[in-house]
Simulated scan of single mutants.
Amino acid sequence: MPAKKISVPLIRNWPVTLLSAGLFPILIALGLWQLQRAGEKAVLSAELNARLSAQPVEPAMMRGFERYTPIKLTGFFAEDYFLLDNRTRAGRIGYEVLQVFVTPEAHWLINRGWVPAPNRRTLLPKIPVSQGIRTINGFLYPVAESTPTKHLPETLPERRIQSLDTRFTRALGVNNEKWSLRLSADSNAALVTDWLWINSGPERHRAYALQWFTMAVVLAILWAFTATRFSALSKYENK
């Protein structure tokens, strides 16, 4: 007589199944999001490389401002400077030096680069003085929008500042409050530059995407072995 087939329920652990069903699309969505971020970073990297390799131009020749655009200015540095706190180079804490540069057409906020912090917090670093008329080269970099405040007066802070935003640039009276100029390494009056233009490249996001997709595959395998009867059915059918 032929063997009678036995009906065996496929799912044997519904709590694990429901949990896996909720986690699986989340892991896939995170992987797709990281791939999207990788694409955005690839476009940004190409844009960055193209602009950083271009020849600097004078602002009067530009139709509009775009980040990373190399420009050159002729003028002189104002006497006052400010120290942007908690900036690191090679693991060492220091400051980025901010100073206004005066040209016949406008006042610009210049980031001259990085200097190490003294061993004592109460001390401030000595900044090399840059006097006289000079031509400087640098790259346009956006200034963060300031958070809304309750009509606080826009007065200049102490020499040491914690963040660079449009409230600070408005207090300085620069003409282009939403933009600063990061000096190029070979520019006159530049300090230590080594600018970090992009926090992470597309390769890192692709690696994150692979991790999320791998976790999704592992989750599916664990679900199949812990919450279903695939293994039991395969053994029964082989008999």
Rank of each mutant, 00 (worst) to 15 (best):
Met1Lys: 10
Ile6Ala: 08
Ser7Asn: 12
Ser7Thr: 13
Ile11Thr: 01
Asn13His: 03
Val16Ser: 15
Val16Gln: 13
Thr17Val: 06
Leu19Gly: 03
Phe24Gln: 12
Ala29Lys: 10
Leu30Ile: 08
Leu35Glu: 06
Gly39Val: 10
Glu40Thr: 14
Leu48Cys: 04
Asn49Met: 04
Asn49Phe: 01
Ala50Glu: 12
Ala50Met: 09
Ala50Phe: 06
Gln55Trp: 10
Val57Thr: 15
Ala60Asp: 13
Ala60Pro: 06
Met62Lys: 11
Met62Ile: 11
Glu66Thr: 01
Glu66Ala: 04
Arg67Leu: 01
Pro70Gln: 01
Gly75Leu: 09
Ala78His: 07
Glu79Lys: 14
Leu83Tyr: 03
Leu84Glu: 01
Leu84Trp: 03
Asp85Arg: 05
Arg92Phe: 09
Leu98Asn: 11
Val100Met: 11
Glu105Pro: 01
His107Asp: 13
Gly113Ile: 09
Arg121Asp: 14
Thr122Val: 15
Leu123Gln: 15
Val129Trp: 11
Ile133His: 15
Thr135Asn: 08
Ala144Tyr: 03
Lys150Asp: 13
Thr155Cys: 09
Ile161Tyr: 08
Gln162Tyr: 14
Leu164Tyr: 11
Thr166Met: 13
Thr166Cys: 14
Arg170Asp: 13
Glu177Tyr: 11
Glu177Leu: 12
Trp179Cys: 13
Ser180Gly: 15
Asn188Ser: 14
Ala190Lys: 06
Thr193Tyr: 06
Asp194Tyr: 05
Leu196Asn: 08
Asn199Met: 07
Ser200Met: 02
Ser200Phe: 01
Gly201Met: 00
Pro202Val: 00
His205Thr: 04
Ala207Trp: 00
Phe213Lys: 07
Met215Val: 05
Leu219Thr: 00
Leu222Gly: 01
Trp223Asn: 07
Arg229Glu: 09
Phe230Glu: 11
Glu237Val: 13
